[in-house]
């Protein structure tokens, strides 16, 4: 039985008066990939961004409910948000490397955490780039701008950047939606390798992708969590009609 690492209870989120999430109860297991699926605007990305408190940056958002991360409430008054984001890393939909060299991009998280030692940085950069399966492609041009890479490469550098701070959980917000099929497959292969060491939560528009890589899948619809189960069950034997309608492509 897998360990539950992060558990949410009755999570509600409001943009002003508009309630975007209507009470989400969901738990995530260690060293598994959980996919959040659902039609556009169903709240899956919003929910994902609650997990590392990225929604705090948006004006007028109120979030209620419990977020139990390894026994501690993420939204507690005294929770160190900087520390939280080191533990729960994030990769965004658009590849967004900083306008710096590849090396500086990957070393960024460690540097802001105060790591100065050149050897530690070198090693972390190399390990993370290897984990993100991009080391061979960039090892000779670490001092070149990350913006000169292709979209798929940029996204894997972004994954490496998130890995470099050795997070506990990695959140991915549609990490392959801006990429071509080939790059997407490479990222998927990377993620499958990464789950040995990390817990991965990914939002995806691509049902096949969820079916290919996710251990568990959660289906969101209009701010509600319809069901969450082993991926096999969701796709082969969904408990709800909405889920099977969505899976079979009747809407969304």
């Amino acid at each position: 039985m897998a360990n539950t690492i992060l558990k949410t209870k009755d999570v509600k989120l409001k943009y002003g008066d508009f309630e975007a999430l209507h009470g989400i109860d969901l738990s995530f297991n260690e060293n598994e990939i959980t996919a959040l699926i659902g039609p556009s605007g169903c709240g899956k990305s919003t929910f994902l961004r609650c997990l590392n408190r990225m929604n705090d940056l948006i004006d007028g958002v109120t979030i209620t409910g419990e977020f139990d991360y390894r026994g501690k409430d993420v939204y507690a008054e005294d929770y160190d948000i900087v520390e939280l984001r080191k533990q729960i890393g994030m990769v965004f939909q658009q590849p967004n490397p900083f306008p710096m060299s590849i090396y500086d991009n990957v070393a960024y998280g460690l540097r802001v955490a105060g790591v100065r030692d050149k050897e530690t940085l070198d090693e972390a950069v190399q390990t993370s780039l290897k984990q993100a399966a991009i080391w061979d492609e960039v090892k000779d041009k670490l001092d070149k701008s990350a913006l000169a890479l292709s979209g798929g490469q940029q996204q894997r550098v972004c994954i490496a950047r998130a890995l470099a701070v050795s997070p506990d959980i990695i959140l991915l917000d549609e990490p392959t939606s801006a990429l071509d099929p080939h790059s997407s497959r490479q990222i998927e292969a990377t993620l499958l390798q990464l789950k040995e060491k990390y817990t991965i939560i990914t939002v995806t528009h691509n049902l096949q992708q969820a079916a290919r890589i996710a251990d568990r899948t959660a289906f969101f619809l209009q701010g509600d969590l319809i069901e969450a189960d082993d991926t096999k069950n969701i796709f082969m034997n969904p408990a709800h009609k909405e889920t099977s309608d969505f899976i079979t492509g009747r809407f969304g």
Partner: peptide, 12 residues
């Protein structure tokens, strides 16, 4: 997204 990327990496 530069800003969010940086914050998401635990930068203040």
């Amino acid at each position: 997204n530069y800003r969010s990327a940086s914050l998401a990496l635990g930068a203040t």
